[in-house]
């Protein structure tokens, strides 16, 4: 009977989750049963060994492999639309582009009205074809960091020009940078040291034993107007 009780509570004892009363009873029972004590010690040791088995490094191209494979998988359009509508967005407005678009819309309406009423259209502004602007969200996770900046080829690698902020205080530093289409390299500058963006999809050796993250804008999902 005592042996059954020991067996029943062996795992809880290994995990250290016995109540205080049960822990005392368990220890007393082990004193009276040397074989059970040996079994308990060996099983505890085995559990510790299993816990300490080293974590394996996944293959370096693991994420890229997954991202390649999901490129052809599309979620239903209505689902994308729904989540797009209910999510907050940061929208960068290109004032010149917006004005041009507005002027174009006014011109189109004026043209429509003039055709309907057979009135000569007035001289409408011609829409200007301006390049797209992108909004890049940079995110860096480090609960111990005190100051985080992002720097790259888009700002001539000026280390302390673009700060990231940890507004929630949970170690997630974020920053938004308006950018033109192009291929950029960047790193984070954290408390006086360069740090790699571990979440980037592509990297390039920087010649100093580190990796610059690669950012390609022009096919991205950022919102532009």
């Amino acid at each position: 009977m005592k042996s059954d009780w020991l067996t029943e509570h062996m795992l809880d004892a290994i995990d250290g989750t016995l109540s205080e009363a049960d822990r005392r009873r368990f220890e007393n029972a082990l004193v009276e049963d040397p074989a059970a004590r040996l079994r308990f010690e060996e099983l505890s040791h085995l559990a510790d060994m299993a816990r300490q088995l080293p974590s394996l490094d996944e293959p370096v191209d693991f994420t890229a492999g997954v991202m390649d494979r999901i490129q052809h998988i599309n979620h239903p359009w209505w689902l994308r639309s729904w989540y797009f509508l209910i999510r907050p967005h940061v929208i960068r407005v290109n004032l010149l582009g917006a004005l041009s678009t507005a002027a174009g819309a006014v011109a189109a309406i004026a043209l429509g009205i003039s055709l309907f009423w057979q009135i000569e259209p007035s001289q409408a502004p011609v829409p200007v074809d301006t390049p797209k602007q992108y909004v890049m969200h940079f995110i860096y996770d480090d609960p111990h960091a005190k100051q985080v900046y992002v720097a790259g080829s888009f700002n001539n690698w000026q280390k302390e020009q673009i700060p990231l902020t940890d507004s929630s205080g949970n170690g997630t530093w974020t920053g938004v940078v308006p950018m033109q289409p192009g291929l950029y390299e960047y790193m984070f500058y954290v408390d006086g040291h360069w740090a790699v963006d571990n979440h980037a999809l592509r990297y390039k050796d920087d010649g100093f034993g580190r990796k610059n993250a690669i950012l390609e804008l022009g096919t991205g999902n950022e919102i532009s107007i």
Binding site: S55, F62, T63, M67, Y83, L201, N221
Partner: peptide, 17 residues
């Protein structure tokens, strides 16, 4: 789900190990 496919890389990086 809103169409920002690249964000999935962050989830992959978080749990791939």
């Amino acid at each position: 789900l809103s169409g920002d496919r690249d964000m999935y890389a962050r989830l992959v990086n978080r749990y791939k190990r």
